[in-house]
């Protein structure tokens, strides 16, 4: 069984919601990425999304873009990311923590690196699935079937302007979970959860049995508390990536403390009795 499916089955049984942090690989460096993954596991994360820095990330807001640019300026290679995640996977295995990894990776990288090579290495370095933000359902059939052979999931995205008819096709093409984008636009932190999102989540439930996870703009425990009854998981990206960005003062240890603090806050908000 794919670890993502096992995770959501277990959470469902326990009546809990998934906390799914996103971090950028290689920012500030890969050693920090490994430490951050382990810190997130300690702070109650259920699954970690690991962003593969890309030179032209059109779906990402300023915080994640800047983290990608910083990582690439240091000469980060895809190969090195796999080595680091394999290391993190080994450390988590020693602690007995499952914590699936999902790669957030551009179609450009997949194509040039070589799909077969990417999937095999992803599998071997501890990944259970991929999110390819610039690969709409129409273009995804070949990739989805190649991933299936490796036992990896391809998570598809639904956005606020996706019509229901189209959403039906997208959730059929998706595996693992469905990534529900909370707002039209790019990733980033926002202060409100739109009402329209709640109604979209309601009709998506009628279209799929896959877990529905919300991302883009989820940055505070309050957001998690608000969303918890409507979703199976929340994805937190920019708010965490921001804490890892060099500000000239914070040390990695301090960054990790702040990340744990925010993560525990979101974890508790998700676990509050409803």
């Amino acid at each position: 069984m794919n670890p993502i499916d096992a995770l959501f089955a277990e959470l469902k049984k326990a009546g809990r919601k998934a906390f799914m942090p996103f971090i950028t690989a290689g920012d500030p460096d890969l050693a920090a990425t490994v430490e951050t993954i382990c810190a997130l596991a300690d702070a109650g994360a259920d699954l970690v999304e690991i962003g593969f820095p890309y030179s032209d990330p059109i779906a990402d807001g300023p915080v994640i873009q800047a983290s990608y640019t910083r990582a690439l300026e240091k000469g980060l290679k895809v190969q090195d990311i796999f080595l680091a995640t394999a290391q993190a996977r080994a450390r988590l295995d020693n602690k007995g923590k499952a914590l699936p990894f999902v790669a957030m990776v551009s179609a450009s990288i997949l194509h040039r690196f070589g799909q077969a090579a990417f999937y095999l290495q992803a599998k071997n370095s501890g990944f259970s699935g991929l999110i390819v933000p610039d690969l709409p359902a129409e273009e995804s059939a070949n990739i989805a079937s190649a991933l299936k052979i490796q036992g990896l999931h391809l998570v598809q995205l639904v956005t606020p302007n996706t019509p229901r008819e189209r959403a039906r096709q997208i959730v059929q093409a998706s595996s693992g979970f469905v990534y529900c984008v909370s707002v039209s636009g790019i990733t980033g932190e926002r202060d409100m959860i739109p009402a329209q999102l709640i109604s979209q989540l309601q009709w998506l439930r009628e279209e799929t049995r896959l877990p529905l996870c919300v991302g883009f703009g989820v940055s505070k425990p309050a957001h998690a508390a608000l969303l918890r009854q409507h979703v199976d998981g929340v994805i937190v990206g920019s708010a965490l990536v921001r804490l890892l960005a060099p500000d000239g003062q914070r040390t990695l240890i301090q960054s990790l403390q702040e990340i744990k603090l925010l993560s525990r806050g979101i974890r508790s908000a998700l676990d509050l009795p409803s």
Binding site: L135, T159, P163
Partner: peptide, 20 residues
């Protein structure tokens, strides 16, 4: 119909742009 010139072209964009 899918915007392909042989193997080239297509739409490799976030879902948010697909409706537009």
């Amino acid at each position: 119909m899918s915007g392909r010139f042989g193997p080239y072209g297509g739409r490799f964009v976030p879902e948010t742009l697909m409706a537009a």
